[in-house]
Amino acid sequence: MRTPTDDFSIHDLSVYVPPRRVSVERLAAEIVQHGGVFSGEEIRRFKTDYRFSHVPVERERSLPEMLREACHPLVERLRRQSLPIDRILMVRTSELSWHDENMLREVLHTYGLQERPFHAIGQHNCASVHLALRMARNLFRTDPYTSGILLVSADKAIHPFFRRLPDSLLGDCASACYLIRGRKLHRTLLIENVVDPTFYDGISGKAEDWKWFQTTYFFALRQIIMTTLRKASLAFDDVRLLIGSNVNYRTWQVLAEMLRLRPDKFYTETIAEAGHLYCSDILYNLQAAVADGRLRKGDLYLTVSVGIGSYGCALHQF
């Protein structure tokens, strides 16, 4: 029996982004065509202030098929390395789906994983990814027979209205990552989650609730980041990069100013071409940041996710 340990790492990951990219103008036209609102001024704001240009849109594959596309390359690599998948965690931003349908059917049958314990968690909006990391950490801590966890996520906007938030644009995406006990590629050291349940109605909530969310937004982000650093006895200078949700560019620009950090302390390079990829942002950006050379071996970095009323932050080491 292996001894439980606090350490776990993101060992490998795979992201499926639909090849079709749609411009902000085109999305705005689709929303207006369906009776929604997306004014010229808003298009300007989304492009100039928020730095969105295009978002990926899935028109062919269902969510299970998107998950298959994300999982296949990763699980093949794990198989070749004889790395075990002992549990499966799924996390999504949206609650809108067929909850009695097994979304991972094809993956489970292809790789003989049907009997694996499965947990599908959510209701932290796009910060659910950090909730999943915390669940994974707890499972590693308490179950000595769990050595490897497959964490998957997939979301798509099934109607043009669902693609636009007041200050963000959502792109369809599926992702999979392999979490492994011990100190491997991207060690995960600390995880924090914060929820303000006032915003339970999300964007359908009362105007005053939405205003309050906007008022408290930057402070809540600042607090979760500071809390994570404080618990690790670290300062901003000790972390190479903050990898955040692609909620919009302005969020990170303003936060950098308030925290007296250089703007490039936040990784925002993918916002223009990918938009906000729900719970898959963090993994997509992590992959991109490593490919860009923005992270080097040994670097400490933070991942920060944002939902409407929910926030997640984790400290990692490459």
Partner: peptide, 8 residues
């Protein structure tokens, strides 16, 4: 800490 379990 609130959270949901669904999709199963």
């Amino acid at each position: 800490l609130p959270f949901s379990v669904g999709q199963q």
